[in-house]
Each structure stands twice: as structure tokens, then as C-alpha cells.
């Protein structure tokens, strides 16, 4: 596998990058912080002395004009990538998003519109070379309109629908699209909260994602228990959702 990771310097992306390079896949990192990219590339190279150096290039989801150049750099380094994984996104609390309209606009633009544009660039390239894998981290928050994650969730809902359509339309052409919906995962972002019973570790999520990619699955809830939890949430009638706080 020749994989490009957007957001591979931290959290679940970091765990995925490590597992990919541990099993011998070529990895190229994209992100918006040069210093972080450099350190993560050094980490991956140092873990496998004698392996190929891990390349990186700047790519900011807020700057769609730079997407093509970033993917060119990845292509040049990997010799045509066949896999792209997007874990990057913006996150903010519902309270902050309701207070700050500009932040809401930014978040929804990055998580939905710009991520979609990035995926379109990838789609074109992968289809032109006969197919490949596109894995994008959406969220369980996009499964249902809910009070605490209304705005963030709506950006992920749009993304999930787009990814599903992409899978329907291009699966036959060899493009394997995987929409990942992580539940509670213990990362830097969730560090302040008491983990619920089926909280996942980034390493476990990364293992699940790699398995789903290898099996060319279109949709993954991870940790697996979240498939059941979200099934229940999706089935709750509206009058219940109005009443409860989640």
C-alpha cells in the first residue's frame, strides 16, 4: 500500500501511520504544521531503521488551493499513491460554535466543503489510475441531529452522505471508499472526560480501520460496540430526542 495521510501526526491518524509503516506500507504525511510533520516523519523513520524515509508536505484543509500541489508531492515521493486516509478535521464544542458564527462557518466549511473538495481531487487521481482506497474519518455525531453536537454533527452528516454516494457510484470502478465513524476514543481531545464503558484506544481503532480497508468495507463503526449504540440512537423517536440531553 502507498498511503497518504492527512492528519497523521496526532491521535488516531498517528496510530494508523505507525501501524501502516510497521507492516511495511509506504507512508506520506500531509498536515498544516511543518514542525509536527517533521517530528512525526522522524518518528516513523526511527521506528524502522533501514526502511524508506517517510516524506511529508504541507496541506491545510482551510486552503483548498493547495490540495493539488500536496497530492503532487505525495505522488512524486511515493510514485503514485493508491491509498488516501483523512483523519484531519476541526472540532469545537456546541457552546463555542453557537457563540461564534465565524467559528461555525469555518468548522462546517473545513469538515464538509473542503474535505469534500480534497476527496474529489483524490477521486480523480485514483480513478485515473484504475482505482484505489479512500478512507475518511467522519463521526458518529453525524448519524442523528442531537443537542450537544448539532453543528459539528451536521458537518459530519454531510460528509457521511457524500462518502456513501461516492461508494455507490464508483465502487464498480475500483474505488474503495471507507467512511469511519469513531465512537469515544481516548485521544488528546477526549483526555478531560471520563471514558464511557466502551471507550476505545487509538491503536485499536487503527487496527479496526486497517482491517476494514483490507476487506474493502464501505462503513466502519469503531470500537464495534458503537454500531449497536448508534443503531439505537437512530431508532429513537423524535419526541424522545427532544426530551433528552444527547
Amino acid at each position: 500500500m502507498k498511503a497518504v495521510l492527512l492528519g497523521g501526526t496526532s491521535g488516531m491518524g498517528r496510530a494508523l501511520a505507525r501501524q501502516l509503516s510497521a507492516r511495511g506500507d509506504a507512508v506520506f504525511l500531509l498536515g498544516n504544521e511543518p514542525a509536527e510533520l517533521e517530528r512525526s516523519a522522524a518518528d516513523l523513520s526511527a521506528r524502522h531503521p533501514g526502511g524508506a524515509a517517510v516524506g511529508h508536505a504541507p496541506c491545510d484543509l482551510e486552503q483548498p488551493a493547495g490540495f493539488a500541489a500536496a497530492l503532487d508531492a505525495a505522488d512524486a515521493a511515493l510514485g503514485q499513491f493508491d491509498t488516501v486516509i483523512v483523519t484531519a478535521a476541526l472540532f469545537a464544542s456546541q457552546a463555542d460554535l453557537e457563540r461564534n458564527h465565524e467559528l461555525a462557518r469555518r468548522l462546517v466549511t473545513v469538515n464538509y466543503a473542503h474535505t469534500l473538495v480534497f476527496c474529489e481531487h483524490v477521486r480523480e487521481r485514483l480513478l485515473a489510475r484504475g482505482g484505489g482506497r479512500l478512507t475518511v474519518f467522519s463521526s458518529v455525531a453525524g448519524d442523528r441531529g442531537r443537542k450537544p453536537v448539532g453543528i459539528y454533527g451536521s458537518s459530519k452528516a454531510g460528509l457521511s452522505v457524500y462518502l456513501e454516494a461516492l461508494d455507490h457510484k464508483y465502487h464498480a470502478d475500483g474505488l474503495s471508499v471507507l467512511c469511519v465513524k469513531p465512537g469515544f476514543v481516548k485521544t488528546g481531545m477526549t483526555a478531560g472526560l471520563k471514558p464511557p464503558p466502551f471507550a476505545g484506544e487509538p491503536e485499536q481503532v487503527a487496527r479496526d480501520v486497517l482491517r476494514a480497508m483490507d476487506r474493502r468495507r464501505p462503513l466502519l463503526y469503531t470500537p464495534g460496540m458503537w454500531a449497536l449504540v448508534m443503531l439505537v440512537i437512530r431508532l429513537l423517536p423524535r419526541f424522545v430526542m427532544r426530551k433528552i440531553g444527547f
Binding site: 478535521a89 464544542s93 464511557p196
Partner: peptide
Amino acid sequence: SVPSETAQLESAPAPV
């Protein structure tokens, strides 16, 4: 579904 309301809060991937 009790555990899920904490989950939603931070189910997001790493921020840009």
C-alpha cells in the same frame, strides 16, 4: 444509550 452523550462530544478526529 446512556454512554453515548459523552461520546458525541469528543468523537471527532484530531483537530486541524
